[in-house]
Write a protein that binds this DNA or RNA. Structure first.
Lengths: 234, 234
DNA sequence: AAAGATAAGCGTTATTTTTACACTTCATAA
DNA sequence: TTATGAAGTGTAAAAATAACGCTTATCTTT
């Protein structure tokens, strides 16, 4: 309707196909995982792939990515952020498609089975990834690099853990992401010194007789820290 | 031709207009500047705007951004990196256009006049920016934030300086970007301790009687530092 | 020709942050 | 009742950062 009443601008420009793809990270006790899908359409039907979709005329790019995530995992309110665009001319032999990749961080344990059963999807360990179509392997590598950088300077690691977690669990997460051991005692001191975690009364006893106290990330406290001019760094 | 012999995939997807926009930073002695253009086409003709263009069928997104930069500044080999996509449905009343913003860092002094005269372009101080069309002001703010973060952890500040520069000039650049004073002596020590600069015999005497030695950033030395596992941080 | 001015450059000390590592505690299993 | 093993606490050394005084080189002024 709008198109009929308004003058037509940009008439000389060529429209292109624009897609979004999602790199979905999960963390399960002691390993980082990636959610992959068996592609339903040609070309490359049935091969392993990131999940994606074309951006529709009447939805924003971000909304498109959120739609993809919701459709294939059933989840909303998942941390997601733009990774970047993949715009080489020949990247998709099916057609000229530009893809804007997004990466998402999921609390895995809770939703693990649900996703697995409903869709042709599977969680993969990072050292056992199958071949991926197009430039999806590059996207995954770039996302991993971004995750490593970003978790260091921003409090997004919590998005990969359940709401309540222990300090050792949090440390394990960072060890897996950074691929190197972190001193138990120094890690605890550092994270607690930021005063961005709430200590709960409950303990998690799944990994020791003694049990470890559960904590919760408190975004308000994080904001206060930022106001104080203190940087989040791990 | 390809389209004729291959099966047609993705037939149900709607093509969209995809553009690139460039946020062009420059640094001139003691101030950070932004290159803006008077828009040539409707809507918003003659208003101040970032420079951009539609991505063509047969060029990559990056190539499109480089083309824009070359066309309007005459320069190639300029540092440029993707900022992110701007994909709200109503962001451009002219049509549904998704823009992938890129930011570029230019050695200003050398090219200052040339650009100014050839195109309807003008360098603006950051505290004196005119109103900008569409979401371009947001793009500029986002680019500024990215520049602040990125210059801290990556050696890209040099892209804004002439090839040969003095330590005080480099410090001034960082002071302008961070908007806070840095201790002369500690700054010098820190940057020299990285051993990524080459000291030259020449002096620059434009800002003191004594004159300051000129240095040159050495990418090879920077790579060595990275290999040694040392982080670049200022 | 000497004195004054000023940014460039060098050095020292105090403070804070990071690293390394020893010891104690808690709750269960044997 | 005791042995076990991760959770949690403490402390000292080392490294990085911040604060700041002093000297040097060269031009301008007298």
């Amino acid at each position: 309707m709008k198109e009929n009443t308004s003058p037509i601008y940009y008439a000389d420009a060529t429209p292109l196909l624009l897609a979004v793809d999602c790199i979905i990270f999960g963390f399960d006790r002691d390993s980082l995982k990636l959610l992959l899908f068996q592609r339903k359409v040609a070309p490359f039907q049935d091969e392993w792939s990131l999940i994606g979709s074309f951006v529709k005329q009447e939805e924003s790019v971000l909304k498109a990515a959120e739609r993809v995530l919701k459709t294939h995992t059933g989840l909303t309110n998942v941390f997601m952020e733009e990774l970047g665009s993949y715009g080489e001319v020949e990247r998709d032999p099916g057609a000229r498609v530009i893809s804007i990749a997004h990466y998402a961080l999921m609390r895995l344990a809770e939703e693990y089975k649900q996703i697995d059963q409903t869709y042709k999807a599977q969680w993969f360990e990072f050292d056992q990834l199958p071949d991926l179509i197009l430039d999806h392997h590059q996207m995954v590598q770039d996302a991993l690099e971004k995750l490593r950088r970003k978790t260091r300077y921003r409090p997004i690691g919590f998005e990969l853990l359940p709401e309540k977690f222990t300090i050792p669990q949090l440390r394990m997460l960072y060890e897996v992401i950074y691929q190197r051991p972190l001193d138990r005692r120094n890690f605890r001191k550092k994270i607690l010194s930021m005063k961005i975690l709430e200590k709960l009364e409950e303990k998690d006893k799944t990994s020791s007789r003694k049990g470890a106290f559960l904590y919760r990330f408190n975004p308000e406290k994080y904001q206060e820290m930022v106001k104080r001019g203190v940087d989040f760094v791990i």
